[in-house]
Design a protein around this nucleic acid. Sequence first.
DNA 1: TACTCGATCGGA
DNA 2: CCGATCGAGTAA
Length: 163
Amino acid sequence: MNILDLPAPEAARALIGKILVRRFPDGRELRARITETEAYFGEADTACHASHGRTKRTEVLYHPAGTIYVYLCYGMHWMLNLVTGPADSPQAVLIRGVEGATGPGRVTKLLQIDKSLNDTVLGGALALADDGYAPENITASPRIGIAYAAPADQAKLWRFTAG
DNA sequence: TACTCGATCGGA
DNA sequence: CCGATCGAGTAA
């Protein structure tokens, strides 16, 4: 059972402590342990980009688990998401933080991730690794930056932090 | 084609 | 607190 086959909220929790491996064409490799995630879960979740249905932008969210979703936010920050769950069920986990980078915009800067990885699949330029490490404890809290979402969705405890 | 606003960050 | 910076979405 792959973590990314799980529903996004469960996958988001399970991804804490796992390692992102960024591989470059010249063979170089960067590794960063995931410390913070958020789940965006389906068209019914008004905080999820797919809440407005299937569009050119959100199409990638409907792809199979393990697909990478990268988009530009505020004109300058790339956001890294990993699609979870079955195909045609739009859900994803936002990687909000890794060791050495606090904040989703810093994660992609550190790992040199941009639009070119959008709609590609984990296992190539970006992969997941599990070294068996398990965080001491994981805290769940409300998601950040979704003031536009319905109150019930803002209240969901779908942000996970290692600590 | 115009306009708006964001899953942010760093500096004042 | 506020500006940077740009593409998707929406309205027209």
